[in-house]
Structures are given as C-alpha cells and as structure tokens.
C-alpha cells in the first residue's frame, strides 16, 4: 500500500549520481531479495526439481517411466501405509481440535497475565528439542512409566496399559507439539470477533450454547480451517515421533521413504513417493485456502 510513499521521489539529484539512485530505487529491493532467492534456487528448487526428475527414472533406467508411481498404488503395501499416515494425521488433527479449541476459547476470555501464561505454555513444546520431548513421553507412557504406575497404585488396572508403541502413543506425541499450530490461528480468529455480536445474540434470547453454535463457532471457522490444515499437513510429514514412540509398530510414509534411501538405496522410488506426498499436501493446502476465501466472502456479504 504505502510502499511507494516510503521512497524518496523528489530527492534524486541530477547527473551520474542521479542515475545511480534511480537504478538503486528500481532494483535495490531486488538486491535485498537476491541472497534469499539465490539460496532457495540452489538448496530448495534445484533439489526438488532433481527429485521430480529422478522419480521418473526408476533405478538408473535411461528412459522415462511411471513405474515408481505405479508401485505406489500397486505394490500392495505403500498405498496402505499412505492411508494409515492419512489416518494418523486425521487423528492428530481431531485431537488438536478437541483439546485446542476450548483452550483458545479460554485464552480469549482470560485476563492479560493468564493469557501470557497460557500462550507460553502452548508454545513451549515448540521450543523444546524433539528428541527430549519424545524421551520425556517414553518416561511418562512406558510400561513402567508414570501413568501406568499411578493407575496401578490406585488399583484401577491390573496389568500395564499399552500406551506406547502404538498409534495412541504417536498421536499423543505429535498432538503435544502441533497443538500450538491449531491454538494460535483459532485464538487470533476468536480475538477478531466483536464481543458485541455475541452480546446481541444473547440479548435476543439465545442460550449460551446457541450463541456459541450460531455466532462464535462460525465466526472463528477461518482460524479453525487454517489451524487444522496446518496440523494435518505437518503430521503427514512427521518422522521422528512415530519412530521413537511408535517403535516398529506404526509406519508412516516418511519412514518408508527414509528406509528406501538409507538402507535400500532406491532413491528414485523414494523420490516418487515424496512427490506423491507433495502433490497430496499441495491439494490439501489449495482446498483449504479456497474454503477460507469462501468464508471470507460470506463474512463480507454479511451486513
């Protein structure tokens, strides 16, 4: 908006120096962007293009072939692992919604000090090392871990509950970190709601639940969609937590890809699976941004 206004439009002195300034004005911003663009070109876009190219040349074959992509659907195991990864991501997203939305609601109502404390707690898993976090969960959820010991001492269970090395354990571990990615967008969407809208609904006789269902929830929907998309997409690419907390009992697509590269040296197949993952994620992101836009439009049409 104000980007032109920030440039001195009348100060250019005449002569060679003036030319230099004009050049700087026109291309200077590109100069600021240049290091980042160069870095990305070399370490981001080039590797990804090579990845796509490799995926079309199954293990050293010279001519193009879709065999690797074919394998994704027909080798009998990859597709089911992919679907299980999707399921895991759905579980995590659902858990984040169930635990995160009420937390965001609470943070909206809370006073500034409490809000700061809650915000710090929500962000704290992001500031902790992945490995440290997972080791801590191993100590909490293990057979002899805190939860099982407490439950057994309370006499509620006889044998230890299987809390670790299954989907449950992985969902707990992943939800722990990615909760922040849901809470923050939902919180900011909730903050943007004018409280008088809710008061108006309440004064017209709506019960508290109706106010929530008909006013608060719809108006925070953009945040909900943004947050759950982020959580879902990030979970699709998660590697370390399933490895540590799932043992060998939970397999995700990123684990398959890592295994293909590091132990089977079949880079082109792993590349094809990676491209499939990227395509899937991009589709989700596009769908979600469409949905958000539509919600924005609907809000715009409201008086």
């Amino acid at each position: 908006m104000a980007s032109e206004a920030s440039l001195p439009s009348v100060l250019a002195p005449p002569g060679a120096k003036g030319m230099w300034l004009v050049c700087l004005k026109r291309y200077g911003w590109w100069g600021l962007l240049a290091p980042a663009l160069l870095l990305y070109a070399l370490v981001f876009f080039l590797p990804l293009s090579v990845l796509v190219a490799d995926s079309l040349h199954p293990s050293g074959a010279a001519d193009l072939s879709l065999a690797n992509y074919n394998a994704f659907f027909t080798d009998g195991i990859t597709l089911s692992i992919f679907l299980r990864t999707v399921r895991l991501a759905l579980f995590v997203t659902l858990a984040c919604l169930v635990f995160g939305y009420p937390l965001a609601l609470f943070m909206r109502r809370a006073g500034p000090a409490m809000r700061m404390v809650a915000l710090t707690i929500v962000v704290s898993p992001l500031l902790t090392s992945v490995i440290v976090r997972n080791v801590a969960w191993l100590l909490v959820l293990g057979r002899e871990g805190m939860v099982n010991t407490l439950l057994r001492n309370a006499g509620l269970i006889d044998g230890p509950l299987p809390l670790l090395y299954n989907t449950f354990g992985v969902v707990v571990g992943v939800t722990h970190v990615y909760l922040a990615f849901l809470v923050l967008p939902v919180f900011s969407a909730l903050l943007a709601i004018d409280p008088s809208t809710e008061q108006a609904a309440a004064s017209l006789g709506a019960s508290r639940f109706t106010v929530f269902r008909r006013v608060t929830l719809p108006m925070s929907m953009a945040g909900v969609i943004a947050g759950s998309t982020l959580v879902f997409v990030l979970t699709m690419g998660v590697y370390l937590t399933p490895v540590i907390m799932g043992g060998s009992f939970v397999t995700t697509l990123p684990m398959v890809m890592t295994d293909l590269v590091r132990t089977q040296f079949d880079f082109s197949r792993a590349a094809a699976f990676g491209v499939m993952l990227l395509v899937f994620i991009t589709a989700i992101l596009i769908a979600s941004s469409r949905a958000e836009k539509r919600i924005e439009q609907m809000r715009g049409e409201m008086p």
């Binding site: 370490v43 981001f44 080039l46 590797p47 990804l48 090579v50 990845l51 490799d54 982020l230 997409v233 990030l234 699709m236 690419g237 590697y239 990123p254 890809m257 890592t258 590269v261 880079f267 792993a270 590349a271 990676g274 993952l277 990227l278 994620i281 992101l285």
Partner: peptide
C-alpha cells in the same frame, strides 16, 4: 516451513 522435511532432506542429500 510446510514442506515435509523428509522430502527436502532427501532432495538436498541427492544434490
């Protein structure tokens, strides 16, 4: 930020 780091890691390794 959003791209799965597994994919990026593989690609960078390859290059």
């Amino acid at each position: 930020m959003i791209l799965p780091h597994v994919v990026l890691g593989m690609a960078i390794y390859r290059v």
